[in-house]
């Protein structure tokens, strides 16, 4: 086996810098999105912010972490971890939002029971 087999992907320096500046730009964008009074997206806001974060994360993963040029399996490992995380989050969110009413009814009921002191 010769050194020819050991060829590794070497990231180019301009690409690394370009990625960094893109990440900083996206950070500034998300801060502006999150604090500006002019831009109000309501319920969409959290998804836009998460989308920007995901773009940033993908940049880091693909370029800084070399996933774009790496063995497919390593990417599969990361993605499958994220998929299971998604299932975990999704089911917990779905379930908890379904029984939220029972929790709130209880809190209200108990506060009413203690109500007379106005506490």
């Amino acid at each position: 086996m010769s050194h020819a087999d050991h060829k590794h992907h070497v990231a180019s320096l301009p690409l690394l810098w370009a990625t960094f500046f893109a990440l900083v730009a996206l950070t500034v964008l998300t801060v502006v999105m999150g604090t500006s009074d002019q831009i109000q997206l309501g319920w969409l806001d959290v998804w836009v912010v998460l989308f920007i974060a995901t773009v940033k994360a993908s940049l880091v993963a693909l370029i800084f972490m070399h996933l774009a040029a790496d063995k497919l399996f390593n990417g599969v490992v990361l993605v499958s971890a994220l998929v299971f995380m998604g299932i975990f989050l999704g089911m917990c969110l779905m379930d908890s939002s379904n029984y939220l009413a029972e929790q709130q009814a209880y809190v209200e009921g108990q506060q009413a029971l203690l109500g007379p002191t106005g506490s």
């Binding site: 089911m91 779905m94 379930d95 029984y99």
Partner: peptide
């Protein structure tokens, strides 16, 4: 095996929808 953990919780106050899934 990762998708079925809720079957330990059919009576635990989990929502019926989650139980069915």
């Amino acid at each position: 095996g990762f998708l079925v953990w809720g079957h330990h919780m059919f009576t635990s106050g989990q929502s019926p929808l989650a139980s069915v899934v």
